[in-house]
């Protein structure tokens, strides 16, 4: 009897794996489709992935540069500071928003054909990840450009370690995306609520301001530090802007937070996915 249930478990596990292998081309097609369709009818096409963060950063620098930029002691270059936070935040908010809608938008397929449904939130996060990686070119351009001015940012080997916060952020996005995509199937309101939440998150993450230079209430500061994006953005800035090793506590906290999100998301998704078809 015991042997039989164990065999059954192995069968189930290998079904998950064989499904993933069988449908991995679907994953890459979803990623390709999302990227291609996003910019299809625009004149500049894929250049918008570069242009959009560039322009929004210019706007933010104009609006906040005078106010926060001068006040921010210990920041060698406010534009780079802004860009680091902005790019990471954009990837998080866009990928999770798109993952959230992915199940509803693929209802036509899910209702008709058997597909591993997690491919849709996962594919949306990956496609946003690809455009995010492309948009990093802007950051590289600014780093090089400022290299010739007196606002030059010290480039050290630590810049290579910036892959660590990026990887953690990716895990976080997958986890949050899975949770949200499941929730949005059952409660459409979640989509609107999440838009508001993202706005709050923008201000709860030190993108335009520096936490230390603000005279903040102790509890507000604690709230901001509990935000995993605070740790991830902080790590990224340490590597890119300050050219030093990142804080290990930041890594431990954000990684643990992200892994827990993935576990919760995977369990929720697995438990509820058979019911999706009844609600979409």
């Amino acid at each position: 009897m015991g042997e039989k249930t164990e065999n059954l478990k192995i069968v189930k596990k290998s079904k998950f794996l064989s499904d993933f292998v069988k449908y991995r081309y679907l994953l890459s097609e979803i990623v390709r489709r999302n990227i291609k369709v996003q910019y299809r009818d625009s004149v500049l096409g894929i250049f918008w992935t570069l242009l959009q963060p560039l322009l929004t950063t210019v706007v933010l620098a104009l609006v906040f540069g005078g106010f926060f930029g001068k006040k921010a002691d210990g920041i060698s270059n406010y534009v780079i500071y802004l860009l680091c936070g902005r790019l990471l935040y954009d990837f998080f908010s866009q990928s999770t928003k798109r993952a959230m809608k992915s199940i509803r938008l693929s209802a036509g397929v899910i209702k008709k054909v058997y597909v591993p449904k997690y491919m849709y939130p996962l594919g949306n996060v990956i496609s946003c990840f690809v455009t995010f990686l492309i948009s990093l070119i802007i950051l590289a351009g600014f780093l090089i450009g400022y290299g010739f001015t007196d606002k030059a940012v010290p480039i050290t080997p630590y810049i290579l370690l910036s892959v660590v916060p990026i990887a953690v952020l990716f895990i976080l996005c997958v986890g949050v995306g899975m949770i949200l995509s499941t929730a949005a199937v059952f409660f459409k309101d979640a989509e609107y609520l999440y838009d508001v939440f993202c706005m709050l998150l923008f201000y709860a993450t030190p993108i335009v301001y520096v936490v230390d230079s603000m005279n903040m209430n102790k509890y507000v500061q604690m709230g901001i530090m509990a935000n995993p994006l605070y740790s991830i953005v902080g790590m990224f800035r340490d590597c890119v802007l300050n050219g030093r090793m990142f804080n290990m506590n930041h890594l431990l906290y954000s990684l643990a937070f992200s892994v827990v999100c993935v576990i919760i998301g995977a369990l929720m998704f697995k438990k509820k996915q058979d019911k999706f078809i009844l609600h979409i």
Partner: peptide, 16 residues
Amino acid sequence: NYTGKENVFLYGATMG
């Protein structure tokens, strides 16, 4: 938004 050709591949991928 996809062309016929692109849809052939997308549809095929959906079928595994």
